[in-house]
């Protein structure tokens, strides 16, 4: 089942297209990594898909009403804002807002599941603003998980996390996909993307450059052309390992 479909999505900043004629579909069970160099249009693509930016072409999510969209897709933006020193548990509970204002047992269950998934049990009563950047990121991921939507979209969810937390976060994303939901993440760490995603989408200057399983998208040629990197890719039993060697 398709959770998000984009048809010829184009976003212009002035006359210049930042996202240029991108079409793609994301279905259940997929953990899709959106990769590309800085300025490739990853964030713009996701924001336009959610209807946050004016765009041309179609996005199935942007076409929904705000309330329907909130039940169809959860979104974790790159800027990790927590304006007030609200308790972690209350922040995570905000994810239940699209499901009505009355607190039901299902709400509590979703919040508890998100807390245990992100291992935040010992933090639940702490003011979220007092946590470290990485811990705050985990709280905000838990908030998006608590929204309990068929599709989860996150903009660089692993930025600022320690290596173990990065792996842990991507494992959670993968689990969610394996449970039959869909995940779309933008990522900078290519090895991590290759390890955890079922599929990678490579953007270059706003265009969709490659779309497929990690070992097909991450080749030494595309790395050189798109990322200006000379890198070696080792096929290992744990998946492709990527060793950047020098800038081209």
């Amino acid at each position: 089942m398709s959770l998000l479909s984009l048809t010829s999505l184009t976003v212009r900043r002035g006359a210049c297209p930042v996202v240029d004629d991108v079409s793609l579909t994301i279905g259940t069970g997929e953990c899709v990594g959106l990769i590309g160099p800085n300025g490739a249009g990853k964030t713009t693509l996701m924001r336009a898909a959610l209807g946050l930016l004016p765009h041309e072409g179609q996005s199935s999510l942007a076409a929904l009403s705000a309330a329907e969209r909130a039940r169809a897709a959860a979104w974790m933006p790159q800027s990790r804002e927590i304006a007030w020193p609200i308790a972690v548990e209350d922040i995570i509970r905000l994810g239940r807002m699209p499901h009505g204002t009355r607190l039901t047992p299902r709400d509590t269950q979703a919040v508890e599941a998100a807390i245990s998934r992100m291992e935040l049990d010992s933090f639940r009563a702490r003011p979220a603003t007092e946590l470290s950047g990485g811990e705050q990121a985990r709280v905000l991921i838990a908030r998006a998980l608590a929204q309990d939507t068929p599709l989860l979209m996150a903009d660089e969810p692993t930025a600022g996390l320690d290596p173990a937390a990065q792996l842990g976060t991507l494992d959670v994303m993968r689990q969610i996909a394996d449970e039959g939901r869909g995940v779309l993440l933008s990522l900078h760490d290519l090895s991590l993307a290759a390890r955890s995603c079922t599929r990678l989408i490579l953007l270059d200057k706003g265009r969709l450059r490659a779309d497929g399983p990690p070992q097909e998208v991450l080749t030494e040629e595309t790395l050189a052309e798109v990322f200006h990197l000379r890198a070696r890719i080792h096929a290992t039993p744990d998946g492709p390992l990527l060793q950047p060697l020098e800038r081209l």
């Binding site: 974790m76 800027s79 927590i82 304006a83 007030w84 905000l94 699209p98 905000l140």
Partner: peptide, 20 residues
Amino acid sequence: RGGLDALTLGEDAAHSLGVS
């Protein structure tokens, strides 16, 4: 009330929680 709570997480996150 609900909208202001959601805005704690920023305008983008509030929008994705169904807040106009």
